[in-house]
Amino acid sequence: MSALLELDGAVARMGAATVLDGVSLSVRAGEMVALCGPNGAGKSSAVRAALGLMPLHGGAAKLGGEDVDRLSERERGARAAYLPQERHIAWNLPAIEVAALGAPFLSGADALDRARKALDEVGAGHLAERGVAEMSGGERARVLLARALVVQAPLLLADEPIAGLDPDAQLLVLERLRARADAGGGVLVSLHDLTLAARVADRVIVLNAGRVVADGSPIEALSPAVLRSAFHLDGIWVEAPDGPLLAARRLLQV
């Protein structure tokens, strides 16, 4: 079965900087893949390139086996849902209307119906009629997650969806993404929290300076050597009742 998402030797530049330097990765159905790496490693660029939002200077990006550049906007939107890191919502729409934006090609009533279910799914059903400008950051994050769920695409790409959220909201977001993968969807999520990444993901891909430096089961990919070279951490994994726990400290600069 072909991958839902594939980057094949993707090269992308922003000005003089090479942000993706031959990145190859894939996401299959039923799989939740965490994309990890320090700031500036190319996580967001990889996600954007996969969606065709960033021009490639080499290599290829494929959604559902087809080159993303050859897909129409509508086909792209049907193959992949995108939850960007940016949570600014320009106007004070009610939550239900924001969530309904996930289904722009459905009739108004059907879209609202889906939106209501998705809001319930993320525990924000009670916020349906509230304006998003009157919400906390955590509430807004739930509404935007609901919007991405409404798309019902086979693939979901989430760029640092838990940044800036409280622990409860972080776990809720990851739980919902996990549920998507368990239901047969493919999920690619970029994360800074390595412990959470190791707990929720089937596979971890580590990027550093625009290159894939590890790709495998979480503990394998986040090996002490990778933690050291990519993250400048001196770390080990400790087995805890709820899953592995990263015990790490900063490497002293030599």
């Binding site: 906007e73 792209r76 995108y82």
Partner: peptide, 18 residues
Amino acid sequence: LRMLTLGEEAARASGLSM
């Protein structure tokens, strides 16, 4: 215009032609 409420990036990936 309605989709653009979510910001440029999300709107471009929404399926509508921005």
